[in-house]
Computed example of a mutant assay.
Amino acid sequence: MTRILAFDTSMSSPGAALVEIRRVNARIIDVSHVTTVSSQPHGLRAEIVEAWATLFIAKHGAKFDEILREDFVGRTSRQNHPVFSAWGAIDQALNKFGLNFTHPAISQSKVKRLVVGNGKAEKSDVERAVRELTGYTGEFATDDCSDAAAVALAWAIEKGLIKEGDF
């Protein structure tokens, strides 16, 4: 069994997913997100993200085999600053438990290509593929939750733990 904690990181609405792989079957254990308000200072928003991530990690006993995140490449510092502040907040949450990301961030296009079969897939395609690969019937409150699950699934597909999506 492999327990994968994955994040789709942003400052406005980061998502997290805990996915368990047993043999060749993937199952979503839990998903979560938090929403911050753009009128709040970045420092406060980062603290909210850190608190949310800390609670999610603690809820699941801080026991994960792999910890992953989706990559982000912004064109300007105005785009990069909020996302990298959120990255730092999640890093801080992980560090409280002596944890760290176990692999480099995975690009959005690679996640989509591995999970959906198309590097330019739409959010609805990603959600559908995640549901097909996991049998998940629960609610995804935001795209960020299904995107986080897709990050975990992309890594599992790349490592040969489950089969690539073909939807």
Rank of each mutant, 00 (worst) to 15 (best):
P14W: 09
T76A: 03
D144R: 11
R45K: 12
A148Q: 13
L5W: 04
V34Y: 10
A105N: 07
L114N: 14
A156G: 08
W87H: 13
G61L: 09
A26H: 05
D65K: 15
V49R: 00
A154S: 15
D91L: 10
K59N: 14
I21T: 08
I157W: 02
L55R: 15
F7I: 14
V111I: 10
F101S: 05
F7H: 12
L68P: 11
T134F: 05
F84C: 13
A141F: 06
G43R: 09
L68G: 08
I90M: 04
E127F: 08
G165A: 03
V83C: 00
Q40V: 04
A141Q: 13
N80S: 02
V116W: 00
G165M: 04
S124R: 00
V111P: 00
S109V: 02
S10K: 01
G88W: 00
T36K: 13
V83K: 05
Y136M: 07
I28T: 09
D65E: 14
A150K: 07
L153C: 04
E127Y: 07
G119F: 00
K59E: 15
G43V: 09
K112V: 04
A16W: 02
E158V: 02
D147R: 01
I21L: 05
S109K: 06
F97D: 13
V19D: 08
D125C: 05
R69F: 08
E164C: 11
P14C: 05
I4D: 11
V130Y: 14
A149F: 08
D166P: 03
S13D: 10
I157H: 07
D143R: 10
G43T: 15
L55T: 14
G43A: 11
I57R: 12
R3I: 06
I67M: 11
L153Q: 01
T54P: 01
E158K: 11
G135Q: 01
A86Q: 00
I90W: 02
K59L: 14
W52E: 08
R69D: 05
N95G: 11
A93K: 07
I67D: 07
D91S: 12
A53D: 00
Y136R: 06
T142V: 02
V126W: 00
T36I: 11
F97C: 09
T2C: 10
T137N: 09
E127Q: 15
A156Y: 05
W155S: 04
D8F: 01
A93V: 09
I29Q: 12
V126M: 02
Q79D: 15
S38K: 15
I90T: 03
S10C: 02
A105S: 15
K163Q: 13
V116K: 00
S13K: 14
E122K: 06
E50T: 06
N118M: 04
K59D: 14
A121L: 04
A141M: 06
A6I: 03
T9H: 01
E47T: 14
I157C: 05
G74F: 03
W52F: 15
Y136V: 06
